[in-house]
Amino acid sequence: MAKRRVVTTTINGRQTEFLCEPRQTLLEVLRDTLDLTGAKEGCANGNCGACTVLMNGRPVDSCLVLGVETEGAVLETIEGVAPVDGLDPIQQAFLENAALQCGICTPGFIMSCKSLLAENSDPTENDIRFYLAGNLCRCTGYDKIVRAVLDAAKKRNAEPAPA
């Protein structure tokens, strides 16, 4: 059996080292080793988006990334989205628009949205539906998620840019 490796990454702004088997996925490392259970496992094969995290700013299905592949990477998970004193406008918009029910898909959606709004601060409804096509939700009816993202974009654009 291949040897365990030490991997050094930055997760949610903090340098983090972990030990992992070469075949362990990033999702397993996050959830089982680092107890960052916000990323969920819906399918383990890249079809549901529940495990979405940002790797070097880009959304990835963490069930399709090996832990060892993240050496030197900057990772962001749902646990790092909210500022200390409240919620990110995206999270707030999800709440206000009832864009979550059981909530198991929500962290994945929010991570994808974060990446969408970083790339495109004023997305159209079509842009949103295209960008979030990798995230599945069984409960909400999606419509509210689209409204939430439009709302979040509006709010973020209304806020003064950070100095």
Binding site: L36, T37, G38, A39, T77, I78, E79, V81, A82, L87, Q91, F94, L95, E96, A98, L100, G103, T106, P107, I110
Partner: peptide
């Protein structure tokens, strides 16, 4: 808005 929304939207 649902009361457990914050916990769900923040991964807690």
């Amino acid at each position: 808005p649902r009361l457990d929304g914050v916990a769900k939207a923040s991964g807690q």
